[in-house]
Amino acid sequence: MKFVTFSHKKAGHHHHAGVLDGEQVACLTEAGLAASVLEIVQGAKSALDKIRGGLTQAPRYALADVTLEAPIRPGKVLCSGINYKGHAEENPNAKMPTEPFFFAKLPSSVVGPDVPVEKPVRSEQMDYEVEFTAVIGKPLHKASEFDVMAAIFGYTLLNDISARDVQFKDSQITIGKNFAGFAPIGPCIVTADELTRPDDVALKTRLNGKLLQNGSTSDWLFSLPRLISFLSHYVPLEPGDLVSTGTPAGVGAFQKPQIFMKAGDVVEIEAAGIGVLRTPIVAG
C-alpha cells in the first residue's frame, strides 16, 4: 500500500491519513481506520490488517482534488553521507568511506509535496539531492544486520536540499542542511511488502525538466542492513524515524559548470515504485 497524509475542503481541511489508489485517495481517518500515518507505522501488522479489512468502506476523493502533505511527521531524520560509488567519485574532496557516515535533518525542516521552499538570502549555492529513504517500523537499538529488514515499515523520498557554501564553510553541515523547508519528503510511503528490492530502485532528479541525476540504489557502497545496523549502535531508532541512504552522482555542486537552484526553479525527484516529489523554489 501507498500511504499519504492529505487535506481536502470537503473534509474540513484537516490532516487525514489515506491510501493512494491510482488517481484516488481512500480516507482512512473518516473510515475510523487510522488517525495518522504515524499511528499506522506504530501499529505495524495489526494496523495494516485492520486497514486491509476495512479499506473498501473508506470514502474516496479524486487525487486531483486533495492536497498531499508530508506523509509522516518524523521524530528523527538521519541521512547517510557518501553512500554511492558514483557520488564519491564525482566529489574531488571525498574519501571513499570505510564505514557509514550520518548527519541529521531536523524535523522542523520537513515539508510535503509542492510546498514552495525559499532560496536562503545567506546562500548562493542551493543544491538538490534525491535520496531513497527507509521508514523505521520497529524499535532498533544495537541491531544486527539480520534484524534490520523486518523492522522497516516502508520507503519514501527525501530531497536533501543543501546550501553548499554554508555546508562546506567550516564544516557547517547541520546549518547548511536545515534551512526552512530543506527536507521535502513524499509523495507517499510505500510499504516494504510492495517494494521488495530496495537495493535496485531507479532514482532521478530533474531541474526545470532537465535530467541531472539518473542513478540507482544498486550503486550503494553500504547495504541497507549495514547502514541501519551501524546507525542503531549509536542512535536508538523508533517507529516513524526516517533513515535516508545517500544520493547518486549528479548533484549541482559537482556539475561542470556548477548548477544551483534559484527562485523560479522547480525541482522534481523520482523513485521507481514511489513516485515524484515536486518542489518549487521561491525568493527568500
Rank of each mutant, 00 (worst) to 15 (best):
I152Y: 02
D147H: 05
F132R: 05
Q24C: 09
K142L: 09
A104S: 13
R52T: 14
Y84C: 10
A150E: 11
N93S: 10
Y155R: 14
E30W: 11
K85G: 12
D127Q: 08
R73Q: 15
D114N: 15
G112S: 03
E69S: 13
A64H: 09
F101S: 14
N83S: 00
L28C: 12
K45N: 13
R60I: 04
V37F: 00
E131P: 00
T56E: 15
V115K: 10
L20Y: 02
S144L: 09
P92H: 07
L158P: 00
F102T: 08
D114Q: 14
F101T: 11
Y61D: 03
G81N: 05
P92Y: 05
A34K: 03
L68Y: 07
Y128F: 15
L68V: 10
A44D: 11
E99P: 00
A62V: 07
L55H: 00
V148Q: 04
S108A: 14
C27A: 09
V121L: 07
L33F: 13
A94G: 12
C27W: 03
S123Q: 11
T98P: 01
L140P: 02
A151N: 14
E131D: 01
T67P: 00
L157H: 01
G154K: 05
T29K: 00
E99W: 08
N91V: 02
A62E: 14
N91Q: 08
A70W: 04
H141N: 14
E39K: 10
I40G: 02
